[in-house]
């Protein structure tokens, strides 16, 4: 699974008006992509659907960039495989 692609898809689902090219690892969720705290929960729900992971609220603390979400998913997926 390409974590970045899945994160991108989840963000597009939550923010259907967004230009896809803006979704890069370094993009700031709030400032660059207009993803607020409610949107972030929706992004997490969308990612839970495709990854089968559980992404509770406490996992989302400190997440500010697209790259942060990708890292979270990658580390969780590794944990799942192990």
């Amino acid at each position: 699974m390409d974590a970045f692609e899945e994160v991108k898809k989840a963000i597009c689902k939550v923010q259907p008006g967004l230009e896809e090219s803006k979704i890069v690892p370094g993009a700031l969720l709030k400032e660059d992509l207009d993803i607020d705290s409610l949107d972030m929960v929706e992004v997490a729900l969308a990612l839970e659907d495709v990854t089968g992971l559980s992404l509770p609220e406490e996992d989302l603390d400190g997440i500010t960039t697209v790259g942060n979400i990708v890292s979270l998913i990658e580390s969780k997926l590794k944990g799942k495989d192990a």
Binding site: S37, L38, V41, E42, L45, E48, S54
Partner: peptide, 10 residues
């Protein structure tokens, strides 16, 4: 409960 939309209330 953890699957309910954060937008439900608004």
């Amino acid at each position: 409960p953890s699957r309910v939309s954060p937008y439900l209330i608004p």
